[in-house]
Amino acid sequence: MEIIKIGMADLGVAHSPDRLRTTGLGSCVGVVLYDQVKRIAGMAHVMLPESSLGKGNETNIGKYADTAIPQLIKEMVAVGASAYNLTAKLAGGAQMFSFLGGNDTMRIGPRNVDACKAILEQNHIKIVAEDTGGNCGRTIEMDAETGILQIRTVNQGVKEV
């Protein structure tokens, strides 16, 4: 069993029994897709809601919800997953510093979550679990064998969805 690390603005795919892991999600959202039949999992660490927010030449499609999720689906299908079998789990999108709530940039967590949900809906992917919002950081680990997503926070320990 291998644990594949997904960095910020990064995405990746794992086959059973491997796992996917991303650490320190704050306002970023961890999007996890899973094909239960083929036991193929995908994970993206999304930083911003839309690629239209980018300035200049964009090279990193893993950064934005609207480019990362379609790319993740494509990569999973390319290694044998069925697009119509995919289900999604979401974690992250916190507001680490809540007092700054009025500012649009500072509300980025909830905006990221909304954008991910909209893109998933466009792609007809059902969200089966989510642990989003709040004001705490999260580390997540997805088991491609079982489809279970482990979510670790500082205050609440580890939970599984």
């Binding site: 320190g24 999600l25 704050g26 510093f97």
Partner: peptide, 26 residues
Amino acid sequence: SVPALAIDMAGAILSYGLIELCRAGD
């Protein structure tokens, strides 16, 4: 701004400082 305090994972906190500038590059 008024300062804000958080006690949490370093990655989750520091990534907050990247939101504005991650729009411009990697």
